[in-house]
Design a protein around this nucleic acid. Structure first.
Length: 928
RNA sequence: GCCGCAGUGGUGAAAUUGGUAGACACGCUAGACUUAGGAUCUAGUGCCUUUGGCGUGGGGGUUCAAGUCCCUCCUGCGGCACCA
């Protein structure tokens, strides 16, 4: 039988789907393992070769784990809400659901062709009302809970109300937007609206007027992680700042737990680092400064309390509430002017001219808590309103930004740390946290780190302030003024938001006549006819953002058809959380933070049993496109010159479809029939080995339709078979690495599969011997068992392919066709090339799928050799190899080495200083 | 500016984690078979001034031994960015 991959692929793909081979069930005695891929957004361009890279890796691991006896959950679905389908709807009027379903169909066909072992019975679509019912439900729960800092978990809002009516705000340790103070009597006297307003300050999902990233081109707000360099991540449209009333999620309440949780996770250092930066913990002190006139005081946050004796001025953010309270009548006009100028600057401009220093004096002074000197209070836009307290103490000697400000406005610079370069503090600040304190009273002579500790202690002792930890992580803005997203389960009664009950969910997305905002500027949902509650109350018109649907989808896969709960207790307690999560790094500050937050929230409420959703994270690299070019003559637009000769002509570079180029050699006939305008193309070719060929230029670029460098995996699967595609994508290099796609080596991988196939065949006949294998054959087998097992366990899938290639070559040299060797070998191949392996397995006479065959046991005894080559070195230089029995003792080795004739010339006339024997490695002799 | 990661043949990359650098594959060279080869097989292929020497971005260090550990510089990629 020849290796007919087309038939084999088709045969086994339909076998798996008919038999439901990969269906997972939580009533199983086997240990569980959950392998998850980041589900794709089904875009119109279809799947390209970059997508399956991660899917292949996770599928290999899944299949391996099944062979290892695990009950593996490996589901797939679609992140189906999103902007592109909506943009398309705006242009064409076609309902986004229609576009989305078409794209999903195409994705499914492409995915099926690669032979993944997904359990499709668990498929989820985020745009399916049965699914988003639970997204909406989670939102209502967030509305009904607040974050209790004393217990460090989310608690029902009713507990807070109880506390307020009994004790007022006293003793409340709840995470809120701003501190509030009222008594129990006051609370009881407040009306509904006032109470609502107070509770919004604490709810996990709350309404607030917040400065948002408004994208006019998309007509919606965007979260911080959806904005890159002042442009929208999707579409690259300009983004501006605007204050709007929005739903927000109190992600910041979980900052500490999100940061600490990272420690337990088996994620790459780089992605942990990105999340750490994004959460941005900084430790320091909050210190209160007394304003000179009146009894006003204000708080600042600093990470350098040790430098407090170096403070020469204070700076308030322009947005700070203190500005108005502090400014003296004389300075009022100047300050007003400055604030106006700041307002005009957009966020982008403010980011752009970081270098220009601007500010204004308030006219007010405060009193230094230790020296009791007067310190001027300034306003400067380098201080941010949203971080810390919106006010700082400026130490120009030891902070470069304060230094620039001091230089600009000729304020004094007092050094308080002595270190290398501190003699130049008038010209340049010394920011390093090392050196000894000077000019600092009781801190003098202490090292910086010690001084920080001492100072915080002193500050707390003198009741000037407290030790404080600040986080950069902000709350997530959760409203989008868009159509194609989850509707909020919210309606308004007298302008106050009300949640729908679980039995009223899902609140389905209504039909609209157009997907644009209304004439009055309301979101598209404002166009929905009669979209009101039974009591005729209006629903919220914005929809949820893209990350809403992807925040808990891994939980839904555990129990996708449950209509009573997001996930049943039994299913959740069996599957628990994701053991291996595979996806790109681009979600580090978005999805991967939000779903950790979402999961922790559900954990606090007792709906899930694990605190972290994804135990191990594997980040696959991006596959870039490799574009090819042809060079068209400028004077004759029908002639194309080969790369090597193009310098002799005036040419124009044109992208050419990479699918008609092989190893940079153009298929000229295919080019002529590619597009009508090339039908009569002529070529100026190069000669190689007496053959006329046309060589194309190349470049690495992002894969995109317009560059004709998109390679669809199904094309490769058609040409070489799914198994060659799978092995080749792995063979390309480590999964984590980004690399350009090229098919240069694919022939080699294909040849390997043919050779592997031929191991089992003699000509066209299957030929398997029942003879016992030789020691040599067993050694080849066990080498590959060891290597493959280690590699897969450590996710280095590329080297397993190499190991299989070596084994195949050696076995074919040995003409080995023993069942005892070839059966286990097929199992080792099966995660990589499942179709080929299944076919061979059934040819070997097995009735059951290879996917449940036990992974071959490794036995060290077949690898142990009787002799070992000891490299012998003199003074570190390797001089010869000496073959000795492996079980020889240290003294015997030393004796054998020194008595060896080659040793004599190195030892002659010298004294032996040292003999070092590294077991099973090397013998070193130091002579001198 | 700060933080993190990486740098190995013509190419993609290996290296048992401190122990014979370049496995495996592509490409290239030569040969065999063939009417033919973009098929298959065999051999060779890090570099050089080749009885030897040099080689893992540059320089220095630790060690009997360094691609691997330490210091420093250079280059590339990613993240954060007036976060006090």
């Amino acid at each position: 039988m020849p290796y007919n991959f087309t038939e084999i692929d088709k045969k086994w793909q339909s076998y798996w789907s008919e038999k439901g081979t990969f269906k997972a069930d939580h009533s199983s005695d086997k240990p569980k393992y959950y392998v998850l891929d980041m589900f794709p957004y089904p875009s119109g361009a279809g799947l390209h070769v970059g997508h399956p890279l991660g899917y292949i890796a996770s599928d290999i691991y899944t299949r391996y784990k099944r062979n290892k006896g695990f009950n593996v959950l490996h589901p797939m679905g679609y992140d189906a809400f999103g902007l592109p389908a909506e943009q398309y709807a705006i242009q064409t009027g076609q309902h986004p659901a229609v576009t989305t379903n078409e794209n999903i169909k195409r994705y499914r066909e492409q995915l099926d062709k690669i032979g993944f072992s997904f359990d499709w019975s668990r498929e989820v679509l985020t745009c399916d009302p049965k699914y988003y019912k639970w997204t909406q439900w989670a939102f209502t729960q967030m509305f009904e809970h607040y974050y209790d800092e004393a217990q460090d978990k989310a608690m029902p809002i009713s507990k807070l109300v109880e506390h307020f009516s009994e004790k007022g705000s006293a003793g409340i340790q709840a995470h809120g937007n701003e501190p509030m103070e009222f008594s129990a009597e006051q609370w009881q006297s407040f009306d509904e609206a006032k109470r609502d307003q107070i509770l919004q300050n604490y709810r996990m999902a709350y309404l607030d007027d917040v400065p948002v990233n408004w994208c006019p081109a998309l007509g919606t707000v965007l979260a911080n992680d959806e904005v890159k360099d002042g442009l929208s991540e999707r579409g690259g449209h300009p983004v501006e700042q605007k204050v709007m009333r929005q739903w927000c999620l109190r992600v910041s309440a979980y900052a500490k737990r999100l940061l600490e949780g990272l420690e337990k996770l088996d994620w790459s250092d780089s992605i942990k680092e990105v999340q750490k930066n994004w959460i941005g913990r900084s430790e320091g002190a909050q210190v209160s400064f007394q304003v000179k006139e009146g009894d006003l005081s204000f708080d600042i946050f600093t990470t350098r309390p040790d430098t407090i004796f170096g403070v020469t001025f204070m700076v308030l953010a322009p947005e700070s509430d203190y500005v108005a309270q502090v400014t003296t009548p004389q300075q009022k006009e100047a300050v007003e002017q400055y604030l106006q100028a700041c307002k005009k600057k957009s966020q982008k401009e403010r980011e752009m001219d970081v270098k220009t220093v601007s500010g204004v004096f308030t006219g007010a002074y405060c009193i230094h808590p230790f020296t009791k000197k007067e310190i001027p209070i300034w306003i400067g836009d380098y201080v941010l309103g949203g971080y810390g307290t919106g006010a700082i103490m400026a130490v120009p000697a030891h902070d470069s930004r304060d230094h620039a400000f001091a230089k600009q406005f000729e304020l004094p610079i007092i050094p308080v740390v002595q270190g290398e370069g501190t003699d130049r503090v008038q010209e340049e600040s010394y920011d390093a946290k090392s050196g000894k304190m000077i000019n600092s009273d009781f801190l003098d002579g202490k090292k910086v780190k010690e001084a920080i500790k001492t100072m915080i202690y002193k500050i707390e002792e003198m009741k000037l302030g407290t030790k404080q930890v600040n986080y950069r992580l902000r709350d997530a803005i959760f409203s989008r003024q868009r159509y194609w997203g989850e509707p909020f389960p919210v309606y308004y009664k007298d302008g106050r938001p009300q949640m729908l009950e679980l039995n009223e969910l899902p609140l389905e997305l209504p039909e609209v006549d157009k997907y644009l905002p209304t004439e009055t500027g309301e979101p598209p949902l404002g166009r929905a006819k009669n979209w009101k509650t039974k009591e005729d109350l209006p629903f919220e018109l914005s929809t949820m953002p893209g990350f809403a649907g992807s925040s808990a989808y891994y939980l839904r896969y555990m129990d996708p058809h449950n209509e009573e709960a997001l996930v049943s207790k039994e299913a959740n307690e069996y599957w628990r959380n994701v053991d291996l999560y595979v996806g790109g790094t681009e979600h580090a500050t978005g999805h991967l933070i939000y779903s950790r937050f979402w999961n922790k929230f559900l954990y606090d409420l007792g709906h899930v049993c694990e605190d972290e959703p994804f135990k191990k994270l594997l980040n696959q690299g991006m596959i870039q496109g490799r574009s090819n070019f042809v060079y068209r003559l400028k004077e004759d637009k029908n002639k194309y010159v080969s790369l090597g000769l193009k310098d002799k002509y005036e040419t124009q570079e044109l992208h050419v479809d990479v699918n008609i180029v092989s190893n940079d050699i153009l298929d000229r006939d295919a080019f002529r029939s590619w597009r009508p305008e090339f039908k009569d193309a002529e070529f100026i070719c190069e000669e190689k080995e007496g053959k006329e060929i046309y060589i194309c230029g190349s470049a690495v670029e992002k894969m995109s339709k317009s560059k004709f460098n998109v390679v669809n995996p199904d094309i490769i699967a058609d040409k070489y078979g799914a198994d060659t595609l799978r092995c080749y994508e792995m063979f390309l290099g480590p999964v984590e690495q980004s690399k350009p796609w090229n098919t240069n080596g694919i022939e080699g991988v294909y040849r390997f599969l043919v050779k592997f196939w031929n191991l089992y065949h003699d000509g066209d006949q299957l030929k398997i011997s029942e003879e016992a294998p030789s020691a040599e054959e067993l050694k080849v087998l066990h080498t590959v068992i060891k290597k493959a097992t280690q590699d897969i366990e450590s996710f280095s899938f590329n080297t397993t392919v190499s190991a299989l290639m070596i084994a195949t070559n050696e076995l074919s040299k040995l003409k080995c066709n023993k069942r005892e060797i070839l059966e286990p070998l097929a199992i080792i191949l099966s995660p990589y090339a499942p179709h080929t392996a299944e076919e061979l397995w059934s040819l070997l006479g097995h009735k059951e799928s290879i996917s449940i065959a036990p992974w071959p046991e490794f036995n060290e005894k077949y690898l142990i050799e009787s002799n070992f080559n000891y490299p012998v070195s003199f003074n570190g230089k390797m001089r010869f190899l000496l073959e000795l029995p492996i079980d020889m003792g240290k003294e015997e080795i030393e004796k054998a080495v020194l008595s060896h004739e080659d040793s004599q010339k190195w030892i002659e006339g010298k004294t032996i200083k040292k003999v070092i024997i590294v077991p099973k490695k090397i013998v070193n002799i130091v002579v001198g």
